[in-house]
Amino acid sequence: MTCDRVLAFLDELQDQRADHFAIVSRLREIVLQAGPSISEEVKYGGILFSARTPFCGVFSYAGHVTLELSQGAALPDTHGVLLGQGKLRRHIKLFSVSDIEDRHVTHYVALARQAADA
């Protein structure tokens, strides 16, 4: 379910950072296709996605976009792309739309969604 705040966030991003808008839009498509009943909200300066519980977020920074995985530390990093040292979260840095495929984002989103449903 998309809310007006998400659309406003995307409009603003498109106006300010078209390169990041392309990455965020593609990530958003992938996350929303990861299963039924995924909700999204603008929080902490990005878009957070939840199923039964929050499982990931997308954030635009000055030089890159990140996909934050809420329980990323518990996920198998078969492609060696997860970054971070915290107890729970891991993230994937993206600099272009092609990084989404190169860094196997769809695979990690599916794992994060499954972990949220467990």
Rank of each mutant, 00 (worst) to 15 (best):
A73H: 14
G63C: 03
D19M: 03
P76G: 09
G80P: 08
A22N: 11
L27G: 04
D4A: 12
A110S: 12
A18S: 11
Q85Y: 02
R103Y: 06
V6M: 03
Y108C: 02
F55V: 09
A22K: 13
K93R: 14
D117W: 08
D11L: 06
P76M: 08
Q33V: 00
L88W: 10
H79G: 03
A8L: 10
T2W: 04
E29W: 04
A62Q: 15
G45P: 06
L82K: 02
L111M: 12
F49Q: 07
V6C: 13
Q114W: 04
A118C: 09
D117F: 06
T53N: 14
F21E: 06
S60Q: 12
I38D: 11
P36D: 15
T106R: 11
Q114Y: 05
F95W: 02
Q33L: 04
V31Q: 06
Q14G: 06
L75R: 05
A51S: 15
V81L: 00
F55N: 02
C3D: 13
E41R: 14
Q14M: 12
R52H: 07
G63W: 00
S37T: 05
R89P: 01
K87H: 04
F95R: 14
P54G: 14
D19P: 03
F49C: 08
Q85G: 14
Y108R: 01
R103K: 15
D11S: 12
E12A: 12
K87T: 00
L88V: 01
V81K: 07
C56Q: 08
V24L: 10
T53M: 12
T78C: 11
L32T: 03
F95P: 01
V65C: 13
Y108N: 01
D99N: 01
E12P: 00
G72N: 04
E40R: 01
A18W: 02
L69V: 03
P54E: 11
V65I: 08
V58F: 11
D77C: 11
V109N: 11
S96A: 15
G80L: 05
D102K: 15
P54V: 04
H64V: 07
A51H: 07
K93T: 07
T2Q: 12
G80Q: 15
E68I: 08
G72K: 01
D11F: 06
E68P: 00
E29D: 15
L82S: 10
F9H: 13
T78L: 14
A112T: 11
Q33K: 09
T66R: 09
